[in-house]
């Protein structure tokens, strides 16, 4: 089923422009990554860096009038060209978990209707079977009284429960790829840990691929094999999670790693990256991070650096090899 090179999802030079007040505005610029079957990739970045837009492009949920260039291919087929029945069967294999479950479930229908509708209308599963499967999956996400929950409306459930319902419903069609767009951001911290553990267990059990979007670098490296970092609508670094964490190559990644709070040691003030995050359309002409980078040189502003392969991933920085090893210290004290 998957392509010859063993990639389930392959995103190459993806760029997206959205119409804003009559003009097209770039929100994604040259995003490339791939996910193999059963593999988990974390997508990390600040608000507005284009993480969610990437997921929406993959799920074919971009707003009307969006202009997409580059390719997104799933199991060898072009996703951007899918239509009708082909698009529906693609969507049966690629499920999505959203950030805010309350907004993403029709408030006037019962949980049972929400969970079983796709199974019954698209997969021809009988009502009794669909309900049985829903109850089974609810049990797997830690909701024991599934029968009762199916009769309830979304407003009767807490946020954490609702997010578990959302995860269970995403898994009902047995997808091969799960897009999780900040699935724990709207939940409180203890619930976050529960939901994350459930998501991680179910993924490993089923050998499902995962694109995990978060702004929590720590969480991404705990759950994902590889982590990609986005800044101003482009991918700046993509490495195996442990490498990214211990030996960041891009100054922005180093800044993120340095900015996270630490439980050991006395710190009176958390380190921060100077300046404010840039949107893709207002990024400087050369390196998008040039105006906030402490290692900037004149040449950085001249041309946008390409995403260059290094031993275990990719990095978009002219000085990556030169600065290697020096960034961690610089990031922590900067």
């Amino acid at each position: 089923m998957s392509a010859a090179d063993g990639r389930l999802l392959d995103v190459a030079s993806l760029a997206v422009q959205l119409p804003v007040g009559g003009e097209l505005r770039t929100v994604l610029h040259d995003v490339s990554f791939h996910i193999g079957p059963g593999e988990a990739l974390g997508l990390v970045g600040e608000s507005g860096s284009g993480k969610s837009m990437t997921a929406r492009a993959i799920a074919r949920l971009l707003p009307a009038g969006a202009v997409t260039t580059g390719t997104i291919s799933y199991a060898g087929g072009d996703v951007t060209a899918l239509k009708g029945a082909a698009l529906r069967s693609y969507r049966a294999e690629v499920a999505m978990v959203f950030q805010d479950p309350r907004a993403h479930i029709n408030p006037v229908r019962r949980i049972g209707d929400f969970m079983t509708e796709a199974l019954r209308t698209n997969h021809g599963v009988s009502k009794a079977d669909a309900v049985a499967r829903a109850i089974g999956l609810l049990a797997e996400v830690g909701i024991a009284d599934g029968q009762r929950r199916l009769e309830q409306h979304p407003h009767e459930l807490s946020g954490g429960l609702l997010q578990r319902v959302m995860i269970a419903s995403a898994l009902l069609t047995e997808p091969r790829l799960l897009l999780a767009d900040e699935p724990t951001t709207a939940l409180d911290v203890t619930t976050q840990a529960d939901v994350m553990a459930i998501l991680d267990d179910l993924r490993r059990e089923r050998g499902m691929a995962l694109l995990f979007i978060t702004h929590d670098l720590e969480l991404a490296s705990a759950v994902c094999d590889r982590t990609a970092v986005m800044y101003a609508g482009q991918l700046v670094e993509q490495r195996t999670s442990s490498q990214l964490h211990d030996d960041p190559l891009h100054p922005y990644t180093a800044g993120l790693v340095g900015a996270r709070p630490r439980i050991d040691g006395d710190v009176t003030r958390l380190a921060a990256i100077p300046g404010r995050p840039r949107s893709a359309y207002e990024a400087p002409a050369g390196c998008a991070f040039a105006d906030r980078c402490e290692h900037v040189e004149d040449a950085c502003g001249e041309a946008r650096p390409p995403l260059e392969p290094i031993e275990d991933g990719f990095v978009r920085c002219r000085r990556a090899t030169e600065l290697r090893g020096m960034l961690r210290a610089g990031g922590r004290h900067g």
Partner: peptide, 10 residues
Amino acid sequence: YIAALEVQGL
């Protein structure tokens, strides 16, 4: 919620 339904392939 409409987007979520679309993603479900309805």
